[in-house]
């Protein structure tokens, strides 16, 4: 049932014969993997099809006739490269910002004791329970007062103070044995030093996780850019994508090309973050 044991890959050097449970694991992973990957392949395939081909042969993963024109058209119809740059800029700023503010706040919630801590923490959780659709208008008014409408700051700033990120990191920080910090306290380390030399290095997997989630969230955010941004040169990818769905006469093949383009950077980001997921806590700590 619990298939392969929780063996860290790099700790066992011995070669073992392939066991049944391992075969089972492969079978399940492969079957699930196919289900997971097919829609993605379909999107990519559709991006190389003509409109008619897409409609007449929707399930063919290999286009009857490969065409690059969808990609060319995407760039010809909208300044997609600008949308890319804008989205990268916003995503990078937000992700870095969230990692800093969330890690600091999470440390306070997880490790420090001060009056009102649990109440404040509950307040953080509570803000996640109100859908953004309903705070849209007050947020718009706020942005107007701050003079931030139609700027990238209106998309970056509100994202920097993430209740979600704080909660995620708090949970991870809580799993770090307090003895580590106690030892450091004995050595005379202050809070900042304990935070930066013990908690942070040990939290690489958690930080990588949060980073990738925030990145995705900002990358795919639609509501705020749709309402706050007006100028074409400030638009984000999701706005570009939505424009391809703009009317009833949707050019699905172009939409698929645009979608494929917008997914690729996220896949690359995930692949590069994998390294951090793979590192174990013990390894991180001992490497120094």
């Amino acid at each position: 049932m619990i298939l392969e044991p929780i063996n860290v890959a790099n700790t066992t050097g011995k070669k073992k014969p392939i066991s049944w449970s391992k075969l089972c694991a492969y079978a399940i992973l492969s079957l699930g993997g196919i289900i997971m990957v097919i829609p993605f392949l379909w999107t990519v395939a559709a991006s190389f099809k003509t409109y008619s081909d897409l409609f007449y042969n929707p399930y063919r993963l290999i286009p009857t006739e490969w065409t690059w024109t969808n990609y060319v058209d995407v760039f010809r119809q909208v300044p997609f490269h600008l949308y890319f740059l804008n989205t990268i800029k916003i995503t990078a700023a937000s992700t870095l910002g969230v990692l800093v503010t969330s890690a600091l706040a999470a440390y306070a919630f997880a490790r420090l004791e001060f009056p009102g801590r649990d109440f404040l923490f509950m307040g953080y959780l509570a803000t996640m329970m109100i859908p953004r659709q309903i705070t849209l208008v007050p947020t718009f008014v706020l942005m107007r007062w701050l003079g931030l409408l139609d700027t990238h700051a209106s998309l970056i700033l509100p994202g920097l103070f993430s209740a979600y990120g704080t909660f995620l990191l708090r949970q991870f920080f809580l799993t770090i044995p307090t003895e580590l910090e106690e030892a450091a306290t004995i050595d005379g380390c202050g809070y900042i030093r304990r935070f930066s030399t013990i908690i942070l290095p040990l939290s690489k997997p958690a930080l990588a996780t949060l980073g990738i989630f925030i990145m995705m969230q900002v990358w795919n955010d639609f509501l705020y850019p749709m309402v706050f941004i007006q100028s074409d040169e400030l638009r984000t990818l999701t706005l570009g994508l939505s424009i391809f769905r703009g009317d009833v006469d949707i050019q699905w093949n172009l939409l698929m090309a645009a979608t494929t383009l917008s997914i690729v950077p996220m896949v690359i980001a995930f692949l590069s973050a994998q390294r951090f997921f793979v590192e174990g806590i013990a390894l991180t700590g001992l490497k120094g």
């Binding site: 003895e179 580590l180 910090e181 106690e182 030892a183 450091a184 050595d187 380390c189 930066s196 030399t197 013990i198 290095p201 040990l202 013990a282 700590g285 001992l286 490497k287 120094g288």
Partner: peptide
């Protein structure tokens, strides 16, 4: 960070 952490771990 190494020295402290190593001891602590």
């Amino acid at each position: 960070p190494g020295s402290n952490v190593k001891v602590a771990v």
